[in-house]
């Protein structure tokens, strides 16, 4: 893939990482595990972007966090808050609207 394509794809996906996090963290999870599940789902986020992003979303009240010290390695678990759920719904609605708009545009040009 050439640089221009990669750059446009990256720009298109940038905003969707937040939505992907809010949706995935309906079930509480910790940083590295979230990184893995996002990668599996096709969102290749860099670790050095995701970890600070989780803290920012927490500071904005969209995620809640809790330390789990029962395992040998203590981990910080994040879960989507009520505000986060509300935002996720809104983002998804916007996502659907964009999808419809793009479809309409595509059909408009082909007819």
């Amino acid at each position: 893939m050439d640089d221009v394509t990669a750059q446009h794809l990256q720009e298109l996906r940038r905003g969707t990482v937040v939505l992907a996090c809010l949706v995935t963290l309906e079930r509480a999870d910790y940083g590295y595990a979230l990184l893995e599940s996002l990668a599996t789902a096709g969102f290749s986020v860099d670790a050095n972007t995701l970890y600070p992003l989780l803290r920012r979303l927490e500071r904005q009240g969209l995620l809640m966090s809790e330390w789990n010290t029962e395992d040998a390695r203590p981990r910080k678990f994040y879960r989507t808050s009520a505000d986060g759920r509300e935002l996720a719904t809104l983002l998804r609605r916007d996502w659907d609207a964009l999808h419809t708009a793009i479809s309409d545009l595509t059909e408009g040009t082909s007819s």
Binding site: Y30, Y32, A33, L35, Y51, K76
Partner: peptide, 16 residues
């Protein structure tokens, strides 16, 4: 807090 979390994340990744 960041120190603990970051260390755990790095170690998780290394172990994997």
């Amino acid at each position: 807090d960041v120190e603990r979390e970051l260390r755990a994340s790095i170690e998780d990744d290394i172990d994997a």
